[in-house]
Design a protein around this nucleic acid. Sequence first.
DNA 1: CACCTTTTTGCAACTAGTTGCATAAGGGTG
DNA 2: CACCCTTATGCAACTAGTTGCAAAAAGGTG
Lengths: 184, 184
Amino acid sequence: MSLPHAILTALLEKPSSGLELTRRFDKSIAYFWPSTHQQIYRELGKLEAEGFIRALPSAQPARGQKKSYEVLPAGREELARWTAAPQDPKPLRDAMLLRMRAAAVVGTAGLAADMRRHLELHEGQLAVYQEIEKRDFPPGRDTPQDRLRHMVLRAGIDLETFWAQWLAEALKNIPDFEPDGPES
Amino acid sequence: MSLPHAILTALLEKPSSGLELTRRFDKSIAYFWPSTHQQIYRELGKLEAEGFIRALPSAQPARGQKKSYEVLPAGREELARWTAAPQDPKPLRDAMLLRMRAAAVVGTAGLAADMRRHLELHEGQLAVYQEIEKRDFPPGRDTPQDRLRHMVLRAGIDLETFWAQWLAEALKNIPDFEPDGPES
DNA sequence: CACCTTTTTGCAACTAGTTGCATAAGGGTG
DNA sequence: CACCCTTATGCAACTAGTTGCAAAAAGGTG
């Protein structure tokens, strides 16, 4: 139940059409809440039906024609409500950990190679985030809004750093063994 | 596409009925791959139909009657294949980060309280994991299987530590401000 | 202007996970 | 043995996200 609120946030930052929204998403919000244009169009329709946003009157609603949306007061209130409401953190669900656990039973053949690949992917993502940090958060400017957005980015940076370190450490310790299976 | 493989792993560790499986899941695998008994029964049916597991002949298949499963060779091979096959890490998707980003637009009222609650939840989960570590991985025993399972647990411990620290740090820096809304 | 490509919007079907409930058997209690 | 509670299995409907594709308009090219 979070995508609609992600869209409200983005539209409050700047009214946009579906496609503009998709592109802006890809450059920021999608880093911690990925979504596709199909999903976004669907949600825009629902949000409009619920009276949270409305199409800017400028363009008429036809296929292949840009249609921009802006947030209505009810939408802003809903976003504020949702932001402040308690929500339980969703539990961890990570396939790599599952594979390591499986490897304890069926052997580690092949797994280490993919761990090395993941390590590189995380380091790559880390570099992307650090580039964004350098560009968007130079030392100096420090509005409350900047600080909040910077904290979110820091979480991304620190998480990628975490996984890179964990994978590097795990790779050092990974034993290469065959399963004690029925074939022995 | 990972639950069936989680089940195969658990069944290889020990053949079980649906309910036993559910309980054993809750004590270990569910920490990084949560699931419900409904899901597990459904997957057991599919795995049996695919020839990866079979019901132990001891008990007849009737409702309200225990039915235990064991893994067939084809199931072990499928698990080994899946474990070794490359798989992309799934991107981050975290509602708390989204809420912080939203708070930059609609204000931080109420959010800090829930961040404090999350901080406590993460600390609680950390304590649970540390208890498990003390119980299941005393210094000394060090088979390859133990080391892999211990690494998985360490990831859980380190992740909870990470979030607790991040939340504590964010709380120190969170500005308390009202939105620059249409009411001003 | 006829044709093709790109942009923008969107539908439909599928997948994985969640929630709510049902039904059958076993086991104890009056 | 009639009743009820617990254990074990499972179906059905719903939710959120993914994948594949298509159709309308805009804009360029011969």
